[in-house]
């Protein structure tokens, strides 16, 4: 195409493409969904046949939730649904109506990292980082339920989260580290 042809193409066709794309996107999003994400109520129109993974990433642009397989095998998309870890890729969006979802973006409070986030950095548990959000969400859920897990309990809680880089060893270290520091924090809070 010549520059001139391109200009014509741009002016006429770009507007048409935008219009089509906008219309098609609206046609798909027919289901009004209300739920709570990271403590904030949201209302968003979704495709009832999409997964929570798509709702979070595409519609709410919370892209910290990753997805390596989208078939429930890798755990990269782990989020908390009413406090329990689930793979967001297997939850249909309408199923979360009225429920509470916590994503990796919701773990740090007031610019202070969650203990597991801190310990992942310190222990060298992060390499490529793609599995990291899912692992941290799973580990945070474990420590919520069991503040002082054994190494085997850490393994059991994280068995649904694949990591291809680290060899898991420093991940186990990181979660155990976070568990003891978490306990110290609570002890200090008690004194205060």
């Amino acid at each position: 195409m010549t520059r001139r042809q391109l200009d014509i193409f741009n002016r006429q066709d770009q507007a048409a493409i935008d219009k089509t794309a906008e219309r098609v996107r609206k046609t798909e999003a027919t289901w009004p969904l209300r739920f709570t994400v990271n403590g904030k109520p949201v209302e968003v129109a979704v495709d009832p046949e999409e997964s929570l993974y798509d709702t979070l990433r595409e519609r709410l642009r919370l892209t910290g939730t990753k997805g390596a397989c989208l078939e429930g095998e890798c755990g990269s998309c782990t989020v908390l649904l009413d406090g329990k870890p689930v793979t967001a890729c297997l939850v249909m969006a309408p199923q979360v109506a009225g429920r509470k979802v916590t994503t990796i973006e919701g773990l740090a409070a007031d610019d202070r990292l969650h203990a597991v986030q801190e310990s992942f950095i310190a222990a060298g548990a992060v390499q490529c980082g793609y599995c990291t959000p899912g692992l941290i969400v799973s580990a945070a859920a474990l420590l919520e339920e069991n503040p002082q897990p054994t190494a085997d309990q850490v393994r059991e809680a994280l068995e649904g989260n694949l990591c291809r880089c680290t060899g898991y060893t420093k991940i186990i270290d990181a979660v155990l580290d976070a568990s003891s520091s978490g306990t110290e924090d609570k002890a200090n809070a008690g004194v205060d």
Partner: peptide, 16 residues
């Protein structure tokens, strides 16, 4: 690691 902080919060964008 210089890249760890953004990765633990989910802030670091990957290709997708």
């Amino acid at each position: 690691r210089v890249d760890a902080p953004g990765k633990v919060t989910g802030d670091t964008p990957f290709g997708g």
